[in-house]
Amino acid sequence: MSALTGWWDDFFWGSVVVGQVFFVSLILMVVFGLIGAAAKLSKSRVAQRIADAYTVVFRGTPELLVLLLIYFGSAVTLTAIAQLFDPSVKFVDIPPFWAGSFSIALIVGSYATETFRGAFMGVNPGHIEAARALGLSSVQTFFYVRIPEMWRLALPPFGNHMLSLIKDTALISIIGLNETLFAAEQAIGATGKPFTMYIVVGCIYLGFSTIITLTVMALEKYANRHLERAR
């Protein structure tokens, strides 16, 4: 434990970065998932094909590969563009924070696409018909009937997607993001205690996972509150 003296603030700021990446990528992941699901459910053949390709590619290639491709790919492209204006430029990149958040959101978004699509299709058609028969407009039906029911179906897998996101943030240290694994590497360099430092990182991630799991459990309870008495 004494080896950790002086490193707590590094781990703390690393955890803050993990939290920031998580929130940015969570928003992007929902956006990608909704766009993908909308494309799969649309009548356009082209949109369906593109969304199919998106889910197949990003669910079938290693996360690390996607991350490195996006980070180094964008860096090569940006450097080439910058050199058109100023040949003395050596290297331009998208900051690892943004390249990383974008990459993991793109990956987990491909899983979320299937979740959202499944939840949309899982809504009982009888409920939609009942809503229309009661005279609700299609907008009202969407917000008062479809969304609450979809939300209940999508929550458990959505919780797993959030866990994947938080765990994938660890990969971003490979392209140089200053998060907990990065802090651990620096602490190891100074103290020579790799086991202690990586266990601390593990505990930090376990803490994040626990918070997410408990939040999802609470949300599920809230989403299913009307079913409570029936059980």
Partner: peptide
Amino acid sequence: RGTPILVQIFIVYYGF
């Protein structure tokens, strides 16, 4: 299941 596989690999390789 609550910790990243990358951290687990580092614990085994660098930590042990």
